[in-house]
């Protein structure tokens, strides 16, 4: 067990945890956009900044990738922290003025109209979609592209990610809801990635139930399952 303080309160954590997850678990409010408990921390949005004092040194740092260390003290809402957070929110607001999650943050931190120009894309470059596809799903279908102001997330070569199984995990995790999924009897599309896959119909009841390509992927990665398992819908299995 590691003991340290957050805003003066003594807390205990397991070695290997990061400051943000412990703080959230104990009820401290630290806003965060690129952290998710199921994924490796990435430290990109810089919203989770806190002041950490270790020994004689105090510095402003992202808390999602700061490991818990015996004896440190963490401050979650000093003037410096709030100023840094406001700056981050202002930049986010300039980039994504319409994203509800960004608007909520701006309201909470009284950040007004941005001084920068808006480019109207709801993607905040948190990288959650890219990490979930690689770390949780597996196909590693999308990636960061470009640099600087033209940096974005998308399929390599920007069209039709060849390994995407249209599972929708990225759709679920995107904090700004800018990855949409569309489905009908014939096909499923992950709109943002330009990926459309034909649907398979159940060999028993004839209803469309999942993309072909996804089922073939499962057939490949699973063992010891009856041959026709992936040809039947959930109710007919």
């Amino acid at each position: 067990m590691i003991t340290f303080t957050i805003d003066g309160y003594e807390v205990q954590a397991e070695a290997g945890q990061n400051v943000l997850e412990v703080a959230l678990d104990k009820g401290f409010d630290i806003p965060h956009l690129c952290y998710h408990e199921a994924l490796k921390p990435y430290g990109a949005c810089r919203l989770c900044v806190a002041e950490v004092t270790s020994g004689k040194r105090t510095r402003l740092t992202t808390s999602c990738n700061y490991p818990v260390i015996e004896g440190i003290s963490v401050q979650t809402s000093t003037e410096k922290v709030i100023r840094a957070r406001k700056m981050v929110i202002e930049l986010l607001l300039a980039r994504c003025p319409d994203a509800p999650i960004v608007k909520d943050l701006a309201r909470e931190y009284s950040v007004g109209r941005p001084r920068f120009t808006a480019d109207n894309d709801d993607c905040i470059l948190c990288g959650l979609c890219e990490r979930v596809c690689r770390e949780v799903v597996g196909p590693d279908a999308i990636t960061f592209l470009g640099r600087g102001s033209s940096r974005k997330v998308g399929p390599p070569l920007e069209i039709n990610p060849k390994t995407c199984i249209a599972c929708g995990a990225c759709v679920y995790i995107c904090p700004t809801d800018c990855i949409k999924l569309k489905e009908n009897e014939k096909e499923r599309t992950i709109v943002r990635w330009g990926r459309t896959l034909p649907m398979k119909t159940c060999v028993v009841c004839g209803r469309s139930f999942a993309p072909w390509f996804q089922l073939e992927y499962f057939r490949k990665i699973t063992e010891g399952i009856p041959k026709d398992f992936w040809d039947k819908c959930l109710d007919c299995r």
């Binding site: 408990e37 199921a38 949780v136 249209a166 599972c167 929708g168 995990a169 759709v171 995790i173």
Partner: peptide
């Protein structure tokens, strides 16, 4: 069918 039923459940909080 719920289109996101395959992996998204792994992203739901593990806390009880």
């Amino acid at each position: 069918m719920e289109p996101t039923n395959v992996y998204a459940y792994k992203l739901v909080s593990r806390k009880e």
